[in-house]
């Protein structure tokens, strides 16, 4: 039984680490601020939550698991709030989003 839990936990942690690095890479690669928000949105609740779920499998049925679950729910609630506040503040500040009006998709990324 512990072997199954170990394998499941390993899979979750590996997937979480993968998505975390992909999200950080996206934050570095994306051309403007609003698109970077999307990359942060894949890293923030998604990759980090997967790592925490992996840790839950490792902890077993203890208080630590409940704390990890609470941490996941907390991240799920707070991360959209800060992302929305960021986007709204940038929009009100007058930062124009980079838009692709039915042009070729390639020239958006080259305008960095």
């Amino acid at each position: 039984m512990t072997v199954i839990f170990d394998i499941a936990s390993w899979l979750f942690i590996a997937a979480g680490a993968f998505f975390t690095i992909v999200g950080a890479l996206g934050i570095l690669r994306m051309p403007d601020m609003y698109t970077r928000c999307h990359a942060a949105g894949i890293l923030d609740p998604f990759g980090v939550s997967l790592i925490l779920v992996g840790l839950m499998f490792q902890a077993g049925l203890t208080l630590v698991t409940v704390k990890l679950g609470f941490l996941i729910v907390l991240l799920m609630f707070t991360s959209p709030v800060s992302t929305h506040a960021l986007g709204r503040a940038a929009l009100h500040h007058g930062l124009k989003p980079l838009l692709a009006d039915d042009k070729q998709t390639g020239d958006v990324s080259s305008k960095r």
Partner: peptide, 22 residues
């Protein structure tokens, strides 16, 4: 822009939370 830096700081904070747990 300053918003990019705030976004990065927020991301670093979330990653630090996960790093603490791990």
């Amino acid at each position: 822009t300053v918003f990019d830096r705030v976004l990065a700081a927020n991301t670093i904070g979330t990653l630090a939370v996960c790093l603490m747990a791990v």
